[in-house]
C-alpha cells in the first residue's frame, strides 16, 4: 500500500516537471501573450505589466488586472504645426503613483521619425487622474505610441 502511494507520488512529480518544462522559466503563459501583442500605432503601451496587465488564457479569475489605465489619448497640432499627443492616466488605487511616460513618433508609413523619445515623470494622485503631454519637433503628420512605466 505504502509502496503504491510512493510510486503514484513519483509519477505525479514527473508529470508536473514535464508540464513545467513546456514554459519558459519565470514567465507564465498569460504574460507571454501580452508580451507578444502587436503594439500598433496611436496606442498606449504599459511597459510595466504591474500597472496594467491582460490575461487572455487564464482559467480562473479576472482577465484584466490594473492599477492605472488610459482614460483617453489623442493627437493635436500646435501653432507652428508640430504634433502634440496627450494621454489622461487614471489611478484606480488608494496610493499615489509616479510614472514615467515617453512618446515615439512614426511617419504615416510607420517609420520611426522625430527626436529620440525621453522619459518624462508624471505624478498620478490616488483615485485621481493626470494628463501627460508631449510635442514632436517636426511638422509632418505623425502617428504615435506612448509608453508608460513606473518611475525608477
Amino acid at each position: 500500500m505504502m509502496r503504491t502511494r510512493l510510486m503514484n507520488a513519483v509519477w505525479a512529480m514527473g508529470l508536473l516537471s514535464l508540464m513545467g518544462g513546456c514554459q519558459s522559466p519565470g514567465m507564465s503563459k498569460k504574460e507571454l501573450s501580452q508580451r507578444l501583442e502587436e503594439p500598433g500605432f496611436n496606442t498606449v503601451v504599459f511597459a510595466d505589466y504591474d500597472l496594467n496587465r491582460n490575461f487572455s488564457e487564464g482559467l480562473f479569475g479576472p482577465d484584466k488586472v490594473l492599477r492605472l489605465s488610459s482614460a483617453g489619448h489623442g493627437i493635436g497640432y500646435t501653432d507652428t504645426g508640430t504634433s502634440e499627443v496627450w494621454l489622461e492616466l487614471r489611478n484606480h488605487t488608494d496610493h499615489n503613483y509616479v510614472v514615467e511616460a515617453r512618446t515615439r513618433f512614426f511617419s504615416q508609413q510607420g517609420i520611426p521619425v522625430d527626436a529620440k523619445p525621453v522619459w518624462q515623470r508624471l505624478p498620478v494622485p490616488a483615485n485621481s487622474s493626470a494628463v501627460y503631454r508631449e510635442k514632436s519637433v517636426g511638422t509632418e503628420r505623425l502617428q504615435y505610441r506612448i509608453e508608460v512605466r513606473q518611475a525608477r
Binding site: 501653432d79 508640430t82 502634440e84 525621453v118 522619459w119 510635442k135 514632436s136 519637433v137
Partner: peptide, 23 residues
Amino acid sequence: SQDVVAMTDQMMRDMLANRILAA
C-alpha cells in the same frame, strides 16, 4: 543626468511649438 536630459528635451520641444520663435 536624467534630469538634464528630460528638462532640455522638454524645453526644446516647447520652443519649437512657439509661434514667435519657430514660425
